[in-house]
Design a protein around this nucleic acid. Structure first.
Lengths: 354, 354
DNA sequence: CTGAAAGCGCTTACAG
DNA sequence: CTGAAAGCGCTTACAG
């Protein structure tokens, strides 16, 4: 690499001290306009930019944030959710002049190292799992600026930006109820995601509130992939041919479910309705487009980054540690009124009886 | 953040000079085993890790690589291709102890800044466009260690890791020819991607070699999204109902094409065959699974990172500047022999047969 | 084998 | 308004 200039050389060439160059660089107020202009010209001439790490040393801050994705890299990088989160994050960081160091490590070792080595001013943790709780608490004890995206059972002192999974899932159920569906199956995400439990609860509560029976095989767990959605929907429809709607806890799985239904020669939504969860971009592009619960992915990224930067800079931050972003139901083409071929099913009568 | 220890404090506590601590930290040979042990104990006791930026300053290298994605962030982050590339990159970097700074900027300004500020030891440029050529050449003049992933018409001095798009596309065409297809339409990617031209050439050459006519509307350009594949396939099938196969220059578009065909009541591959390009993970998960040309995405990420790190460390690197990774055809369920009535009979009979 | 000193390229009080 | 000096936390010759 070409040797680049230093502040000392700029100072010499501009005929001032490096203190003055530093003042110009940092836009301090008290520099004579003439001096400032002279220094700026030399800086521009050489395309000079100060060494970021020298700067970090004396300012003891790096303007760098660690973006931690504590999952198996193979799992994460096939999931649009993480990509959209990253998008929100990078956009907001760039806007405020911060840099993002990517830290991909299930055991969070790299993240700890980056903190101990002072590479980062703070950490953003995407979708923590149960197993990360002790690490999170340890970071808090060290007073590392930290924001989680997604819910975690860790210390209540940690900031977490999340949607209300329970209410989001419930709104999906109510949408289906409103369309007359009663026989609704549920495909949940992996049990190791803290969000899965809440969505499950909403499904069960919703069904119970409507007085709808939930048979054991009607609730199943997938791995958030298209393929697992495809498989599980087949199992469900084999066992419960009278199911009129499926609520699926992730869009990827829901897209697999669409395939299943297609392949079984049924129409969506005339024969079966499907609701997803996440609102990844793809959910709008598939055919039929998917009714789903928006996670406000990009928005969460934006909010959490700004919160973290405020934390780092000592700017005022909200009192409450949990920042809730509304989970909005997005109605598209994969849901419709329950089919008229269903009325003779026992559950329908059941509903009317209610 | 909790104030962390410095090498000086470790030295005092271990009763040695900081030079010695530094030697232990860097695993230099000439330290008395006893001394070394004593220092190591203190280091472990305090979980000490040296300040990375202080280190960067004296060593004048940061062990950080800029991963540049010079595209509109909205475009990139809906594309699994970039995610899988990142995966290969991060895996390889972690293994060699480097860190990744994410630089997302169409105009490459942030990338230049990171270089001028000495934040990074080198750059990895993902899928350069035509418009980036002058920037690439400028970086080369400054002797910035640089590796491109994907082809670029920039200076022949730059290392580029890519697949042979022409041969890859040709193998797809030959696969279709082998199955008896003659009436093959082509949906290309955006013209601003350097790869699009090569794939187009392969399609045209293949068709010409077989003596197959290519009517103007049989070659179209999409935007690499599922939705654009869906739309364009509809246009093509409206205009050319006798097309028996589509070669689609990206898996996303190909997935949209599958939807189109489904929606028109035709079967894949019995009525129409579809070949994609990229081999993103999703291509294996859709139904039917997609025959496609593998870009060896993760492999390219791995190779390019290792090449860049060798370049940075002054290790020997290959003579040739273009590292070609083989583009392999992956045959799955979306292609099959041309239907017996294809050559001249119209589609209608088929439709009704359903 | 080990330590004292200089240096990496900045910023930040402290004088004036 | 500006400069000289000290300091950030390391590494790296240079002595011994």
């Amino acid at each position: 690499m070409k040797k680049s200039m230093t502040i000392t050389e700029i100072a010499k060439e501009a005929g001032v001290s490096k203190s003055t160059v530093s003042r110009v660089l940092n836009n301090k107020s008290d520099v004579l306009p003439g001096t400032k202009e002279r220094v700026l010209r030399v800086i521009r001439e050489h395309q000079f930019q100060p060494n970021a790490y020298a700067r970090s040393m004396s300012q003891r801050r790096s303007r760098t944030i660690g973006v931690v994705v504590p999952h198996d890299i193979d799992y994460v990088f096939q999931n649009q959710y993480y990509m959209e989160i990253q998008r929100g994050i990078l956009k907001a960081m760039t806007k405020r002049g911060y840099y993002a160091l990517m830290l991909c490590c299930r055991d969070m070792k790299e993240a700890f190292d980056a903190v101990l080595q002072k590479r980062v001013d703070g950490l953003l943790l995407i979708s923590p799992l149960y197993e990360h709780t002790p690490y999170i608490n340890e970071l808090l004890e060290h007073h590392v600026p930290l924001v989680l995206i997604g819910k975690s059972p860790a210390s209540q002192q940690v900031y977490q930006v999340c949607i209300d999974n329970y209410m989001g899932a419930l709104s999906a159920m109510q949408h289906l109820f409103g369309l007359g569906h009663r026989r609704i199956a549920f495909i949940n995400g992996p049990h190791f995601l803290p969000s899965s439990e809440e969505r499950r609860r909403a499904y069960l509560d919703g069904m119970a509130r409507q007085g709808n029976a939930v048979l054991p095989g009607m609730v199943r767990e997938g791995y958030n992939s298209i393929d697992s959605g495809y498989q599980i929907a087949n199992q469900i429809l084999n066992e419960f041919p009278d199911v009129s709607a499926l609520f699926v806890a992730s869009d990827y799985m829901a897209i697999g479910v669409l395939d299943t239904i297609h392949d079984r020669g049924m129409r969506i939504p005339q024969d079966i309705s499907v609701v997803g969860f996440d609102n990844i971009q793809m959910s709008e592009q598939v055919t039929p487009s998917l009714t789903t619960v928006s996670q406000q992915i990009e928005e969460k990224g934006r909010i959490s980054v700004n919160l973290l930067m405020d934390l780092i800079e000592g700017a005022p931050t909200p009192e409450g540690r949990v920042i809730d972003v509304e989970a909005k139901l997005i109605v598209r083409d994969s849901t419709g009124p329950v089919s008229s071929r269903q009325p003779d099913s026992p559950w329908k009568t059941h509903h009317i009886a209610l």
